[in-house]
């Protein structure tokens, strides 16, 4: 796994009270089970994550991602089975094409692409799940509140 670059230090963290909201779309078979394993293994991870369980990452419509941002998410994570492990054979292969392309569209629109993360976490990787959540929470904290939709929430013309 690639390490996420963050520049925040312990000192910075003390000064901020911002708690990012991260919406995570997890596949039922791998990542959700991986998160479950992290729990039963008593591996801690930040409570900033809100999990939505789906059958497969192939089910994730980019609409879900944008809707999560619209409703106040600071970061969105899509996590599923490693390539080759999909319960439905190829759902994650499709997600691997579709979602990064959507990320490039977000970037083109001027939305920081780091706010949309993807990961492969298997049912056996409770430790990886815990690490992914810790890393992206640190990144989301560093990026600060996602205010694009907040700022355009004022609905008057």
């Amino acid at each position: 796994m690639e390490a996420i670059q963050t520049t925040s230090t312990a000192d910075d963290d003390e000064q901020t009270t911002f708690e990012p909201r991260i919406v995570a779309f997890l596949c039922n078979w791998c990542s959700y089970a991986g998160a479950d394993l992290a729990g039963t293994s008593r591996l801690g991870y930040p409570p900033n994550i809100r999990i939505v369980k789906l059958p497969c990452t192939g089910r994730v419509d980019p609409l879900f991602i944008l809707k999560a941002f619209e409703r106040g998410a600071d970061m969105v994570l899509v996590s599923g089975c490693h390539p080759g492990d999909c319960h439905y054979t190829s759902g994650n292969y499709h997600a691997r094409r579709k979602l990064p392309t959507f990320r490039s569209l977000l970037e083109f629109m001027g939305i920081d692409p780091r706010r949309f993360q993807m990961s492969w976490v298997s049912a056996a990787q409770g430790g990886k799940w815990s690490q992914v959540v810790a890393d992206i929470t640190a990144l989301a904290t560093e990026l600060g509140p996602f205010e694009y939709f907040e700022r355009i929430r004022d609905n008057r013309n």
Partner: peptide, 30 residues
């Protein structure tokens, strides 16, 4: 990314209804 140009043939498969293990990568995925 997918070496695809839409509409060049009626037999083609859209890039999101197929995949290519030789081409697709895990770039940017944790």
């Amino acid at each position: 990314k997918f070496e695809f140009t839409s509409g060049m043939s009626a037999d083609e498969k859209g890039p999101f209804s197929t995949f290519d293990l030789g081409l697709d990568t895990d770039d940017g995925i944790l």
